[in-house]
Design a protein around this nucleic acid. Structure first.
Lengths: 270, 270
DNA sequence: GAGTGGTCTAGACCACTGT
DNA sequence: CAGTGGTCTAGACCACTCC
């Protein structure tokens, strides 16, 4: 009170409201006072009040709805993704077609829930850019087969992830069926596709970082402004040590949790 | 031109400039035209131009510097973090004090670079909130020992990560030395601390998601507006299956890459 | 139609960076 | 000092939602 506050007014207001939310004075789902009301109570122009609200949105604390009002955000439903799915997919690849179809339609559940449904796979002819060329260990410009698809849960209409997957075209061409988009969804997934090429995946490397979404990604994933995406590059390595598939998976950062378990070696003696 | 554009003007400008950056017309490090200049060339008020620039900042494409100008952002230096560090730390825990000290001072390098330096460890008495109580499998309100510290590279002054680590206080009390902040940095790290309590860590679970930074985190990590942090909860489980340590690690999302490798089982027959 | 948030204007003062 | 971005005002029109 006595010592004057050097921070901009809009930030002070934002932090005041933030404290109210964290203290539980404002509960998730509660409507905020309207901009006009806030403008009056804080004796600020509407522009400044909007600055405070923008800040709260960037902190992921509130959500504004045109024509309705601004609401305190509920913690969004989280979806968990674990690399156990990779082993599951590999095991499934060796099953019969009938069983693969059945398994593919069934929910995949690893204790936590991970129901998924792939749709709208799209095939594109692509060339290796510098990045992909390095990943595959091929020349820049090498022809690749690119598959684009999205996954979503059965109840929600917003996709869980946007995926782009690449295979070296010359490798994939050994099985002409792989080049046809009509064959999607391929029963048994990528690992079975690779199996038809006589390729066994030995290990998979996930590289994860967070970044702001591109405009398209923000729209496709229904992401609020200020929320980042998790960008996951998945690299599959076969039993000969070569890179056989590269995928870029884009996940909404605030709705997705990635879980990785590291098993440590036992001490020899204590 | 002919069909009118329904999107707000500030967004159109932002996307126009975005295209220029992606096309390479504007190179990383290049200064943008000043707000006054943009305002003139696009025939918009400065407020609207600022809206476009804010959008570009949220996309992570430009960086504004007070009194200097606005610049196209360079891809920031990435730091890689792999769970191999956990095994390394466990192995190191069994070495002699002298060796642990030496190893602690040395850079830890896993092929990619991961030099780190811990500093300003702080000890706090804490109680288990609902979240931590569940993680540890104890009653809510159980006394915990909380350690806070940060890591940074030797050349940069901005920390790489903010860490809060918890151990059940009653467990830690078996070795009174662990309760004293003066003993930091503890030679051998957390795993050696646990070893003095007769605890061997069997596996470590990392749970990762992305979220907007809190105001404090944004300031501490020098994060630009619109960029998220990677929040990593690390859970250490001992050979009896109990949770012995929980850490929350906050990493700048655009500067950090997490790498996890999943080893798959070989097929029995082909 | 009343109330909400989204966009936009024209202007002002400030703090900071360079010269 | 001039030029830059950061904050703030008072007012306007719009698209949307709900009654």
């Amino acid at each position: 009170m006595t010592t004057r506050d050097w921070r901009p007014r809009y930030l002070q207001v934002a932090e005041e409201i933030r404290a109210q939310i964290l203290d539980g004075e404002l509960q998730p789902g509660d409507p905020m006072p309207s901009e006009a009301a806030l403008s009056k109570t804080y004796d600020l122009s509407r522009t400044s009040v909007r600055g405070a609200i923008r800040q709260l949105r960037e902190w992921g604390l509130v959500r504004a709805e045109q024509g309705r009002g601004t609401y305190v955000r509920a913690q969004r439903q989280r979806v968990t993704r674990t690399p156990e799915r990779y082993q599951w997919e590999k095991t499934r690849a060796q099953l019969s077609v009938a069983e693969r179809r059945k398994a593919g339609a069934t929910e995949y559940d690893t204790g936590r829930t991970m129901p998924e449904l792939a749709f709208t796979a799209e095939y594109v002819d692509a060339e290796a850019d510098a990045d992909l060329a390095e990943a595959f260990g091929v020349e820049k410009g090498t022809a690749l087969l690119e598959r684009r698809y999205r996954t979503r849960t059965q109840d929600e209409d917003v996709p869980l992830s946007l995926v782009r997957s690449w295979i070296v075209r010359e490798v994939a061409a050994k099985n002409p069926d792989l080049l046809k988009a009509e064959n999607e969804p391929w029963p048994g997934g990528t690992q079975h596709q690779l199996m038809t090429l006589d390729i066994e995946v030995d290990r998979i490397i996930d590289r994860v970082h967070a970044r702001p979404p591109s405009p398209d990604e923000a729209a496709d994933l229904a992401i609020d402004p200020g929320v980042s995406v998790l960008a996951l590059r998945k690299i599959s390595i076969d039993t000969d040590g070569g890179v056989v598939e590269v995928s870029d998976v884009v996940l909404p950062g605030d709705r997705t949790e990635l879980v990785y378990t590291t098993q440590l070696e036992r001490w020899k003696q204590r």
